[in-house]
Design a protein around this nucleic acid. Sequence first.
DNA 1: TCATGCTGTCAAGGATGTTCAACAAGGACG
DNA 2: CGTCCTTGTTGAACATCCTTGACAGCATGA
Lengths: 192, 192
Amino acid sequence: MSGFDVGTRLKQLRQRRDLSQRELAKRAGVTNSTISLIEQNSVSPSVSSLKKILDALPVSISEFFAGEELASEQVFYRAEELTEIGDGTLSWRLVGARRPNRSMSILHEYYPPGADTGEDMLEHAGEEGGIVVSGSIEISVNGETRVLTRGDAYYFDSRLPHRFRNIGDTDCVIVSANTPPSFAEGGGTQHH
Amino acid sequence: MSGFDVGTRLKQLRQRRDLSQRELAKRAGVTNSTISLIEQNSVSPSVSSLKKILDALPVSISEFFAGEELASEQVFYRAEELTEIGDGTLSWRLVGARRPNRSMSILHEYYPPGADTGEDMLEHAGEEGGIVVSGSIEISVNGETRVLTRGDAYYFDSRLPHRFRNIGDTDCVIVSANTPPSFAEGGGTQHH
DNA sequence: TCATGCTGTCAAGGATGTTCAACAAGGACG
DNA sequence: CGTCCTTGTTGAACATCCTTGACAGCATGA
């Protein structure tokens, strides 16, 4: 039914690391029985259990299921197919789910009035750039602050501390690209 | 615990599609209560349940969790500062003139009605992707042809033969990105 | 106003996932 | 051979998820 063999996939990942069911269970904070039952597809684990187990490998959930639709790489995306990555006020839409082997991510970003990536400046590896499609946005990079409007653009090394803020009273829409894909690996509730 | 807000994410995806809990539940083959409880993070759904629900959206599991791990060069560019690379009918505007050490180029592309990158399919190293900002465009990649409109997007390996054509009667505007930068030195009739 | 239909929430109990503890199979060593 | 350690599996008890069926809130309209 699921079309995706959770049990076998988990078993492969575990064995590749030379871990016993008990050892993995211990690291994950579950019991060996749980691992056994999952690997036999006797149960469909809860997301929380699966996450605990994958964290111990460690493998991200999206990685775990990455092969699920590897079938054919998708080229075209309808507007409503873009993967949404929001957190309440801010909202980004990703072209293509996280595909670990792609070298860029492209985003459709929506900043409602007042939206703010936060006072703690963002800093991470890679480069990013974009063009303002509508509205206006205040961008600070490495101490310099500018307000960009429709048609304006930016490009910088993401290691420079940066911040995005919509100080206008209309939505701001940006199309941007990052490299390497930053909605990706690694910890934390990272933006951008 | 999970560090990832499953409930809120599901709610966003559902609401973006204008589905009620009951309607989504019906399509997914679960009950509305299940959706409600998950959205409130009152439970951590089983993988099988989550998959049924996501299939109904439809969103792949890896996409669903894509945001899990989130995200003295010139930085800002006024619209009129973008370097124009036109050749009569077609017109691109580059964010930042070609800077060899950048790993991406970002383009504001204008396709007037009838614009066509040519019958000889383009093929070159790298990857490219973009989002349609206005108008519509016919894109062919590796034999497959689609018409994209406002908000739609694409992403593909540039080694696949590809072609862009505006078959509508209004301008088409796209924001795109390529890696590695492919608008090589010195003009020529280079396209992406 | 009352009926109707929609929305999302919640308590109770049945269904399913997880644990605890036992078990058998296999290898290492004396 | 027996002992000891490891491995993965399984039955019964417990915890959690899921469904049933109800409820209140809000809108539309007779």
